[in-house]
């Protein structure tokens, strides 16, 4: 159901990763994603996988939460795996319908790609589970702040504010969608059966009220912000200052080691 959507959710905790600077976490995430891309063979990817598992363990977020995310992306994962199955070279293991050859290279490729996507999802979840949406947007604003010097000052703030609001309202919208779905089901709406056109049509009674309510909410929010003298970041100070600590230094070192490891394994094997 809709409630199973956990991507972008924060999980309360006190782990090292929860405490570290959100700006550094974003940098590490980008670095690790690039590294996972760079990993060219199973050894390098395996090394990356071990690093991701260690990150998951020290995040102290229950593994169940990560697996829940996997459920959502399972279709994409399977699709990638199946497509890659056909694009391999090497020894033909068996043929489907006498035309499509499945090779050992294909199977290798398919597992490799699926694992890669899985690692992306897991490592991104580590960031979102250990960082509140507010910290995340503050960090992005801070990381983008150099843009201020080339005259994009208000753009940076507006972007960050838009992200904060979007993240803040995702759960609200999901809850609202669920309420409306229930109300229409109570009027006999059939959301589960029928062909594609019928199903798309069945969405109208849900999307129309949902859109209207989103627009209404945004007007209300704008009014409320203006009533509290919001003027777009001018002269705004922060309640929580972000500071680098020893933990960040330590974890940055860990990232560098992971990077060195993956690159070495790439070259050596």
């Amino acid at each position: 159901m809709l409630k199973d959507i956990t991507i972008g959710q924060y999980y309360e905790g006190k782990s090292l990763l929860h405490k570290s600077d959100p700006r550094m976490k974003i940098i590490w995430l980008i670095a690790l994603i690039v590294l996972i891309f760079l990993a060219q063979n199973m050894y390098a990817l395996g090394f990356a996988a071990i690093s991701v598992i260690i990150a998951i363990v020290i995040s102290r977020v229950p593994i169940k939460m990560y697996l829940k995310n996997m459920k959502t992306i399972l279709p994409i994962l399977l699709f990638t795996a199946v497509i890659n199955l056909f694009y391999g070279e090497g020894e033909v293991l068996f043929s489907l319908f006498g035309k499509i050859n499945i090779t050992d290279g294909g199977i290798y490729r398919s597992v490799f790609m699926a694992l890669r996507i899985l690692l992306f999802i897991f490592i991104s979840s580590v960031l979102t589970y250990t960082t509140t949406p507010n910290d995340l947007t503050d960090a992005i604003e801070s990381l983008l702040s150099p843009l201020k010097f080339i005259g994009l000052k208000s753009a940076v703030h507006t972007l960050a504010m838009m992200m904060t609001i979007t993240l803040r309202f995702i759960p609200t919208l999901i809850e609202e969608a669920e309420k409306i779905m229930n109300a229409q089901k109570a009027r006999g709406a059939d959301l589960e059966s029928g062909g594609l056109t019928k199903r798309v049509k069945a969405l109208i009674p849900i999307l129309v009220p949902l859109l209207i309510s989103a627009v209404r909410r945004s007007y209300e929010l704008a009014a409320a912000m203006e009533c509290r003298c919001y003027n777009g970041g001018e002269g705004k100070t922060r309640m929580k200052k972000m500071r680098l600590s020893l933990i960040d230094l330590f974890l940055s070192l860990a990232c560098i080691i992971i990077g060195a490891g993956i690159i070495t394994l790439n070259i050596l094997l």
Binding site: A186, G188, A189, I204, P205
Partner: peptide
């Protein structure tokens, strides 16, 4: 669901049709 009708809290937020008549006819 047609034998046991349920009117939710703030049911006005579930209206979606172009006309009053069409909306009442949905059920």
């Amino acid at each position: 669901r047609s034998k046991v009708g349920l009117v939710f809290q703030y049911p006005e937020y579930q209206l979606f049709e172009e006309t009053v008549f069409a909306d009442i006819a949905f059920g």
